[in-house]
Design a protein around this nucleic acid. Structure first.
Lengths: 159, 159
DNA sequence: TGCTTCTTGTTATAGTATAACAACGCTCCT
DNA sequence: AGGAGCGTTGTTATACTATAACAAGAAGCA
């Protein structure tokens, strides 16, 4: 898994590589990475935390890029639909994908201490769950896998 | 796993055993299974589908048991807090626990065809995810595990 | 040009959830 | 009996999350 976010790292590169990977993917697939969409992706990439649609909208509004909820939701729909961002269902918030371009079934570790969210890649995915599903003839299209808890730093701080 | 809900079964017993198991647990732990709380549990047990808080509230209102949102949400908080019901984060809806009394980390199979939801018990839980979490020093307190897809009947009907 | 498709702008509204405060009933304690 | 403490309910108001619906602009192409 990638636990970027819980550890120090060159954060500028998160943003740059994220945006350029998204741009590449869009170019390859004939998708339009418009101003609003790119900016929303950047806003998400600036944090390893999940942001609410209205948090994002506030920034867009301040920058003159849109002022009504549908503007933010449309951009988020686009980004999540194409794997550039994910929705954290547990929080009703959104986060940039930490591996844009790589196909994956993401899982998330949400720290309730510092609100950081790490994206894990539980690949041959859903292990036990997919077995259980097969056993009853259920076909999985999409899985939500979100764990709440404490990251190492917060757990140590809590002692 | 238990895939009750996807298969024919004696549904009356779902309700009866559910309520009495909850009553037993409450008695054992000094919790109050009040009228509203019991009724909400019954309402949930009547379906193997997830219900929204406002759906439930509508029924309560019709029965004179409460008419404002907090009434429903408080009962649901109680039920989920003590393991008698679960929230399906993906749907913002609630469902009765299918194994009241049994300690468990639940997982759900949500059929997008017929809206039935089955509760699975992926016991030594979260398998890969918990391994990945340990690897980065993350301590899981609670996990959301929800898979959307088609149950056998709906998949066959779709062909 | 005319047509199609995708994107944006805007208004309005739907749907989900909680804060805050008053009041009631119960147990426990003196 | 009186009163404190606690958990539950009733109620009002409001916050937060999300989408429907329609008008209009921009880009590509027959």
């Amino acid at each position: 898994m990638s636990a970027v976010g819980f550890h120090p790292h060159n954060h500028d590169s998160c943003i740059q590589t994220g945006v350029s990977a998204a741009a590449d993917t869009c170019a390859a697939q004939g998708l339009q990475l418009t101003d609003v969409r790119r900016r929303v992706l950047e806003i998400l990439l600036e944090e390893h935390r999940a942001l609410g649609a209205y948090d994002i909208l506030e920034t867009l509004r301040a920058e003159g890029l849109g002022s009504q909820p549908p503007v933010a939701y449309r951009a988020l729909d686009f980004l999540t639909k194409h794997g550039f961002a994910h929705k954290i269902e547990r929080l009703n918030k959104f986060i940039a994908c930490s591996d844009i371009g790589g196909a994956h079934a993401p899982a998330f570790l949400i720290c309730t201490g510092c609100d950081l969210v790490a994206e894990a890649h539980v690949d041959a995915s859903e292990g036990r769950l997919s077995q259980a599903a097969e056993a009853v003839g259920f076909t999985i299209n999409r899985a939500v896998l979100e764990a709440e808890g404490l990251c190492q730093a917060c757990r140590e701080a809590a002692t």
